[in-house]
Write a protein that binds this DNA or RNA. Structure first.
Lengths: 211, 211
DNA sequence: AAAAAACTAATGGTTTTCCGGTATATCCTT
DNA sequence: AAGGATATACCGGAAAACCATTAGTTTTTT
């Protein structure tokens, strides 16, 4: 690992759990190549700080009280183009990890990561590389096998209305289209999610996080 | 607070996230009336340890890799009748909190609790009282307003089958009962969850964590 | 053992969904 | 401007779900 002038890597932590922040600080304090310079429990504060504040690596939790971690990641990389973000959360959810990476995160860790993994991740990300924990990798690999179908805006809209208990006729009335059209959408939805009735459609839709 | 012979309160922590454990230790190390004696990332290890090990207060996370936190709570209180358990998790979910209390937990904290709250909770629980964080209290109060309907075993079973796309006839065949019986169950389910068709039933059931 | 809850079953309709196709207009991107 | 994706619409028939109500039997709880 290349250190800039033998200075430690400056890290900021954004996480809404004080005990996680303490834990990270405590774990990282064992390494003198690292230095946790600032911590934030609110995403917006961190965003404002980084307007002119500096750091090498950001440890960013997904679950923040005021702003979505994924959104914050996007805004940070848009403004601070050289920023290096390492995503963290307890959710080993492929779609979330994908979104984080898409929005500019350089790596991703589950919160049950070992201290070793954590250190490795920080160093890799600092060096401009990417890092994903072993568990994360296997989740991504597994999820890329089963293709998630794409639902159109209209389909999602109708899906929500079905889930709220409205019948084909009622939906048609609200959207000012023929009930036959809604039927077609229904059928397309069921086909896409590979089910053969509405209850299973709703279950599957929620499993796939469309609802 | 009454201390036993001026000895610190002995605490064990059960949590699958190393960084949370570190965080808790670090936070609690500031108080010399407390002492974190052992920590575990696996529930079963902790259970075995407490067969003859002692401690004053257990900080127990709900999300453990090997055993459900609620179940562990139940087993611990059944065996170690004098144990004092303080539940913790990120989920501010009324039903989970209720279950924990029902299984013998003396208090409950969200993981975004402040160090102050944490200390208070430990002291209260140690003194034989109960403690619930401010946020937890409001969640419990709110949830007690809207009554969660009770589903019978059979109803839950049928609910799962409906969600998996099976028709009334198919369910009847599998359970060796009349389709008319299944119809009745369906109707009772819809009535209990206050919806008027199966798609809405599934949505509501998942919202209420029956699925 | 009594009471309550849960499970079972039925009658007889009405409404809604599901399935097999087919087809046109429109929007969006290249 | 072309092509693909999206939204719209139709027919006809079979299958399934929904509704209002009642009631006997079994299991569980008190």
């Amino acid at each position: 690992m290349i250190l800039k002038m033998n200075q430690p890597i400056e890290i900021i932590i954004i996480d809404d759990h004080p005990m996680v922040i303490e834990g990270l600080k405590s774990l990282l304090s064992a390494y003198d190549t690292l230095s946790v310079t600032y911590t934030f429990t609110k995403g917006k504060e961190a965003y404002r700080f980084l307007e002119d504040g500096v750091c090498d690596v950001v440890l960013l939790d997904i679950n923040l009280p005021d702003i979505n971690g994924i959104e914050l990641c996007e805004k940070l990389t848009a403004r601070n183009s050289h920023i290096r973000i390492l995503g963290m959360s307890t959710y080993n959810d492929a779609s979330i990890i994908r979104q984080m990476v898409h929005k500019g995160a350089r790596g991703y860790l589950l919160k049950n990561a070992s201290p070793d993994e954590l250190l490795q991740a920080i160093e890799q990300v600092y060096d401009g590389k990417t890092y994903f924990g072993a568990e994360v990798k296997s989740i991504l690999a597994e999820s890329s096998l089963k293709d998630i179908p794409h639902l159109t805006r209209r389909e999602k809209e109708i899906l929500r209305m079905i889930a709220s208990g409205e019948t084909t006729q009622q939906i048609a009335d609200k959207l000012y289209v023929s009930p036959l059209t809604i039927e077609t959408h229904r059928r397309n939805l069921m086909q896409k999610l590979n089910v053969n009735n509405a209850p299973a459609l709703i279950k599957m839709a929620i499993d796939h996080k469309f609802l």
